[in-house]
Amino acid sequence: MHALDWVIVAVYLTWMIWDGIRLTRRSGELEGYFLGGRSLPWWAVGLSVMATQLSAITLIGTTGQGYADGMRFLQFYYALPIAMIVLSATLVPFFHNAKVFTAYEFLERRFDVKTRAFTGLLFLLSRSMSLGVVMSAPAVFLSVVLGLSVTQTVLLSAVPTILYTMLGGVQAVAWTDVKQMVLIVFGLVAAVVVLVMSLPADVGFVDALTLAGATGRMRLFDFRFDHTEQYTFWSGTIAALFLFCSYFGTDQSQVQRYLTTPSVAQARSSLLMSAYWKIPLQALVLLVGILMFAFYTFASPPMLFDARHDRELRDGPRAAEYNALDARFAAAAAARTAAAREVTEARQRGEAERLDAARETFNARDADVRALHDDARTLVRQVTRQADYNDVNYVFPTFITTRLPPGLVGLMIAAIFAAAMSTIAGELSALSTTSVIDFYRRFVRPVATDAHYLFISKVATVFWGALASVVAVRAADLSSLIQVVNQFGSFFYGSILGVFILAVAVPRANGNGAFVGLLAGMGLVAATAAYTNTAFLWHNVIGAVAVVIVGYIVSLLWKQQSTGIRNQESGNRAAPGT
């Protein structure tokens, strides 16, 4: 990497630490540290929410997905604006007016302590493991680019983030998120501009989309109703609605953000920012992938985008087979380029029939290239014994490192760091808040000074940061454990939404009903995952509906003395006029 790029990355990392610490006010009090004194402006919180959600995996993986599969994945986000409206109208006023620190604290006020402790524990377990995975993916890529070990790149993103999250609390997290979000969007727009400029002189933006369209990569709506298919219009609008309501409405990493605003109206505005901008932002990420596909149609692509495995195969025992495959791949790619030229020419001359024929030929040539690429991947899987090997995550990194000019490489790497750090910081802050508020203060030391709780929360931030770093470095060894925990986490996403629905919409529901309902919901989702091949998005619907039905019935049969506030007191009074 060029010296200029190193300087850019170093300046970025230093700036984040300095800025994160500089911008903290009232971080010596509990409310200031955890909730920014409930004084952050809605636009900063809105950007922070989006930055936490946009991880480095999005930047690296989703661009690769756009390259290989096109815009189809965008359907996943179609329900997000509706989810934001639902949450703004329902859960947000409840949380805000209850003056809680965490979403789970609200559950004790409404139900009982066991429901709070169980949901809080599920959050801590699943989030700490998934944070390790979120840290590991960009670290692997950055280790290849920067020539450092994975341990070093994990530390490079984790240590600054732990430092400013620990010292500055949620304010530091939110304000650095704002800058990181700006950097990420700038990086994406720069990538689009460079990609369009890198196309051959006679190939324009519309030609690039036409080529993508000819191979089905511009399919944005799949109206088939197939419950086993992950991304269709129906799973994206119905099933994903439940997932987004659960993620944005009940996950502490998101809830904590909008609790930092001074009023319900501002909290709503911060959420509605995602309603307006999430789909266009995700389309921009996928567009980078589409344009990389057009770019590599004309600039001969490597058979494997992952240079490390490419070298391993070339030097390995099956080198002859691999090299022969590579020669066939180069010929197929050249044939595809010729077909692409024909499409472009026919389109530019406005010859409709010729264009139709050319599009069909191009699609067939692209299928040849894909088939050979699949053969190459199969070969890697056989040689390395990695059953799930895929080089899709290396497409964007390869483009950055081999095709961008010095300066821009540093900027894009800083953007990837930004995406990683904004997610890590948000999660760490939420993990620390839940540990202290829902467990330490609740069960260990109910009465202590703010200074004491702040000290414990700083220790908790370092603990969770260190644990996630270890998981990230050892992700390969721990993969089965991570998978189990993540699966466990996915069982509870829809189910926990069901608990919150019971809390705010079913006045008769009690703690016993909510707790038994939660267990029943998770059990049903686990059974669905084990015995059917229903796509995971639908698990959220199954979980939520099961919890509400079982929870309601159990609440009627198993009465409980009120241990917390009822929703008439906490929510109904608060909702009007806000």
């Binding site: 179609y78 509706i82 989309l209 369209g213 511009m218 944005l220 709506f221 309603a275 789909i279």
Partner: peptide, 30 residues
């Protein structure tokens, strides 16, 4: 409350416009 309702209606109108735009994009390029 009526202010919020107007905001929600605006979000839904923009949402429908975005989805329609994306659908037309698919029709044009596929």
């Amino acid at each position: 409350v009526s202010g919020m309702r107007a905001t929600y209606v605006r979000v839904i109108i923009v949402w429908l416009a975005v989805l329609t735009g994306l659908y037309l994009l698919q029709r044009y390029f596929s």
